[in-house]
Design a protein around this nucleic acid. Structure first.
Lengths: 201, 201, 201, 201
DNA sequence: AATGAATGAGGTTTCATTCAT
DNA sequence: GATGAATGAAACCTCATTCAT
């Protein structure tokens, strides 16, 4: 694929992210995407097989970026706690940089039937496996408790982050000013690491 | 509404839960629901305004049950930790008793465009507010750390549970036998309460 | 299927025959059919699975009528020559009574890809098999020459009729007044029976 | 037109014949033709005006070959019976040499809406006129019966051949091995000439 | 001449909803 | 209440053709 095509393809994906984020996948029409992208309707089908394919391409490419980031974190950092902190930080930052993309990733992608295909799950789970590995490493180093399954830990970590971002995105009662994302991130990290039980002196 | 009608209405809701769980909301046709319920599809419109209304009725009624349960917990129990434990336990049990309903509640409802109406959010948030209250109560009693926002705590709690159940429901690699739900629940409670950091002696 | 439905279904089929005959199958749009029939185009899909199904239903039902006629001829008449004459006569009359239907049957049906399915060929060939049987019967009775395969004879018979009708339908140079169908039919029968070679005295 | 271009044009026509024969005209896409020809699909439009034009070019050029053959037969042979035999023979041989082309000529061309233009009919009918002429010549020479219209005779001749070849091409029940084309041709000639009625001694 | 990215009109089909019975 | 035939808007996708390179 030439560089020029890659650009046009990216224009379409970017437009799709915007449109999906605004109206939701099912309420978005393909013509909305082409209008937003400023390309002919038929062009969508040069670059993608179908509307489904556009959505899943967004998932695959963005999730891969997350995996790349995690991999880089694995190579650069050594302390497990720092790794997890950095990953959570990255996810929150991603939301701040591109809330539309995050909406699509959190809301539209997982509800799509074709998301539940083996290939997509391999990719999706790769992220959870990395979290597990980091957690297991922490256990081996003696910094994380041993009686917790790394699997469940990875769900608790991602779930806390995912649900919090969902509130920022959708909760009409939620006021970002009152409760800055920055602070939310810190407290989630704290809850995950220390729990919320007060320790006996 | 007569008792008989209530029954037929419930038959339709039950059928809708089954169908939505199997195919997802958007892939489910009204005729699928009526077939499953064994009624004419025109009948759906005696009991519900629209297909949307069926989904949101499921949400409203089931979420209300959850709220009733939480209220009862508030009345019966006193220890905040025990309350949270019992709520988490109830959610996990609900999944075990009626996985189809939980699928719909976790995947279809919050990802439906119409879900994001003020009334629905009031109801949805009522649950989070209860969690907040319990957490705040714990802080006042000195059993929960004070430097964590009850709001964020409620998200961490629900997010960990929600994401874990989603894995049980959807992850094709997940093996329930290897990792019983019971154990997952215990570990989530532990993580939330104690965190996963090993404490210095 | 109720009598009323049968009627509406027939209205649609009749309209489809008219539209297909005028514009050809591929140039006909489903909306043309529904307009012609005076029904909503969604209704087409109550009675037929697809546009293809409409065309093939025309074939199946009309071809079945031909088979019924042939069967009746088999039961009523005894002389093979008379049988073949009556069949040819019936086909020519069918064209006169409903030229549109004949156009569809001769031109649109055999060009349609799905026509070449096993079920359709069984039906199609049933007619040729009947012709073969009649011919074989004629051979056994000693009225038809024995050194001709009944199979090929059936093709020669139908081919002569089919091609002649195609000329009446399409040939712009063809003038029905100059050469009445009646006469064409007689001469075809004569050619098939006696051949066109002058016999030595 | 340069010799080289003529070659490329022929490559495209040959590819189109193959593709049309395999999938039928309407199911064939221009890209299928260009792929088969090994050229860019834009190139089709250097040599032909449209997809229709490709099909009709096939007709015009191949039908012209048939006319040339008939003309040559007219010049070379003298006996009408021999002429007709040779024409039938040529058509059957054409099918054997290039079944794909014959499929297109028999099924796609005459069933294409655009085929029914005055120019095409002039060309198409020229063949039937030649058959008529030969037949009329036979009548004048006293070898063919006088009470048969040469026009209808030409339809009977071509129809018998056309329908028989269609069976060889499409009938899934037809077994070429059991009934060789050679034999079919002989019997068709016999039927046309002598009819299938047994003569009284 | 040759290419193939780009175009966008056009058509089939789906399916939630209505309403006469 | 119950039914399901009828409706028709809406949406995806195809694919012949164009045209800048």
């Amino acid at each position: 694929m030439s560089e020029k095509n890659k650009t046009k393809r990216d224009i379409i994906l970017k437009a799709a992210i915007k449109v999906f984020a605004e109206k939701g996948y099912h309420s978005s029409r393909t013509i909305d995407i082409s209008n937003e992208a400023g390309v002919a309707y038929g062009s969508l089908y040069h670059y993608f097989q179908s509307k489904d394919d556009i959505l899943l391409s967004i998932f695959r490419e963005r999730w891969q970026l997350l995996l790349n980031k995690v991999e880089k974190i694995q190579e650069t950092l050594t302390e497990p706690g720092e790794k997890i902190l950095t990953i959570i930080d990255y996810i929150f930052r991603s939301y701040q940089n591109n809330p539309a993309m995050m909406k699509v990733l959190i809301m539209d992608v997982p509800r799509h039937a074709q998301f539940y295909s083996p290939e997509n799950w391999v990719l999706y789970n790769a992220f959870f496996k990395e979290l597990e590995n980091i957690f297991r490493e922490g256990q081996e180093r003696g910094v994380y408790v041993k009686n917790v399954s790394p699997l469940i830990a990875s769900y608790a970590i991602y779930g806390a982050v995912d649900t919090t971002i969902r509130q920022y995105v959708y909760n009409p009662e939620f006021n970002d000013n009152e409760f800055p994302l920055e602070k939310a991130r810190e407290q989630i990290v704290q809850i995950l690491k220390e729990g919320f039980s007060e320790r006996a002196a």
